[in-house]
Nucleic acid binder design. Structure first.
Lengths: 193, 193
DNA sequence: GACAAAATGTACCGATCTGTACACTATCAT
DNA sequence: ATGATAGTGTACAGATCGGTACATTTTGTC
């Protein structure tokens, strides 16, 4: 099954929105860059917002697949994998064209909580959190919820600081912190055993 | 000295941009909301971007003043103050109209690193980092740079997760993590003494 | 009251925005 | 070859965008 013209539009729009922003990118610009006629675009999607939603769906799927698959490749034991998340973050930050998290940026432009774009961005973070939680559970730590939240904080913080160029070592610093927090959580577990 | 019409514009534009976003807010909308004529606006500022820069300057000053002053109020000893930052974050998150960090959102809409709006947002984070570093130094911890970066990660992560509504306890979770990281850094210092 | 400064209202510019109408062409299975 | 399907190009509507021109009114000061 060759990629449909529709899928082509979504994947190209993803790159353009990611680089230029959602509101700042007009439909005419998408036409010029993708070579796909506006008539076709509006046959695939009823509105620009629906195109954005499709882009976010694709991004969510692509990112989660890549992120967790890559973390598994870089590790063997559960505890390694939890820390490997931060190595994957580092790869992401240093990869070509890194411009921050698309969902954080989407929320910055579509701020109303009842906006479907906002909701879908929130859902993405919830899915990440869910997968992270499962991995942390496997380490046998006593309070997986708490550690999950702490590592989520480090990950999101690293994304923001890396995007803004505040810190060039955001992923490494986050990994260092995660190691300490993981050790602390594990030793607290041990105390109770 | 009563507040000039210009200052009024900046402070009102701040609220509106914060709520609605920068690009999504048109100058005509600012006219309608503030009652200040567009002619006057363009006499105070040469362009919308310059108005945005003035808004960001005001926000930077207001926020840093409030944040660090409030942290001092809530604490007595240096170690308390470092943790008090997260109590202040909590107050911010739970305050009326909290909608995330204006500078993170600014960077999401003005992504080019050579854009003055981007640069000013980056500078804001650097100033926060600098003040945090000074406070951490006062605790006598051995590696203040490292702890500063770690706490920055927690703070930025908390802001993002609180804004997106991913976590309702972002500030508390960040405080818990900060306490562990601070203790870890202090004990490492003690080892070397 | 006179005069300058500050602010206003209104109307507009050209460009761009999302979205649509309509006629046309390429593709492909039957 | 025919006819359905998918896609294109162009032109446009109506609104809004950032920004300006110009004449007018308000305000504060001497």
């Amino acid at each position: 099954m060759r990629p449909s013209r529709r899928d082509e539009l979504v994947s190209q729009a993803l790159k353009i929105f990611y680089k230029n922003g959602f509101t700042a990118t007009g439909m005419d610009f998408l036409v010029k860059e993708t070579g796909i006629s506006k008539t076709s675009m509006y046959k695939y999607f009823r509105s620009k917002d629906e195109l954005i939603l499709a882009v976010l769906r694709l991004r969510d799927e692509q990112f989660r697949n890549w992120f967790f698959r890559r973390a598994e490749e870089l590790s063997s034991e559960p505890e390694d994998e939890v820390l490997a998340f931060f190595d994957v973050l580092k790869e992401w930050f240093e990869g070509e064209g890194f411009q921050g998290c698309m969902f954080i940026k989407a929320v910055a432009e579509f701020q109303q909580p009842d906006d479907p774009i906002y909701q879908q961005s929130l859902q993405h973070k919830k899915l990440i959190e869910g997968e992270l939680f499962k991995k942390i559970q496997k380490t046998g730590v006593g309070a997986p919820e708490s550690l999950t939240q702490q590592l989520m904080l480090l990950m999101e913080g690293a994304i923001v600081l890396a995007q803004m160029g505040v810190s060039a070592r955001a992923a490494e610093d986050a990994r260092d912190a995660a190691r300490i927090l993981l050790a602390s959580a594990l030793s607290a577990t041990g105390d109770k055993d």
